[in-house]
């Protein structure tokens, strides 16, 4: 296993571990705040996966600063970066609305366990 394969495995492995961990928390936890924490971890993993797809070896950041002017340089893919820039801000908005719903549910039911919130079950 050479060094590039190891970096390859490291980056994708970390991203997929984050996705799987967040999904596990969403599926098995019963506590509402924990579920929102799982959603936020999953969001982070997907963002890392998108950035990793756009990476180029020996590439520079896509900024034509005076240091690279006039030289031929390879640059990393800028489109996933613009996408992830948007996704992080939207993810913050999603987390904020989810947590406000959690606070509202706590005020109404005085509990945070989803087993005890049975108003919609029959």
């Amino acid at each position: 296993m050479n060094i590039q394969d190891f970096i390859n495995f490291l980056v994708y492995g970390t991203a997929i571990f984050l996705i799987i961990g967040g999904l596990y928390a969403v599926l098995t936890k019963k506590y509402l705040t924990k579920i929102v924490i799982g959603l936020s971890i999953m969001d982070a993993g997907i963002n890392l996966l998108l950035i990793a797809i756009g990476y180029t070896y020996k590439g520079t950041a896509p900024i034509f600063s005076p240091a690279v002017e006039g030289k031929t340089v390879t640059m990393v893919d800028p489109v996933p970066q613009a996408l992830v820039l948007t996704a992080i801000v939207i993810g913050f908005g999603v987390t904020a609305v989810a947590l406000s719903l959690v606070i509202r549910l706590y005020r109404h039911h005085n509990t945070l366990c989803i087993d005890n919130i049975k108003n919609l079950k029959w």
Partner: peptide
């Protein structure tokens, strides 16, 4: 830190 090392300073 990961984003910085993967050449994405904006992110």
């Amino acid at each position: 830190v990961f984003y910085f090392l993967l050449q994405a300073p904006d992110v």
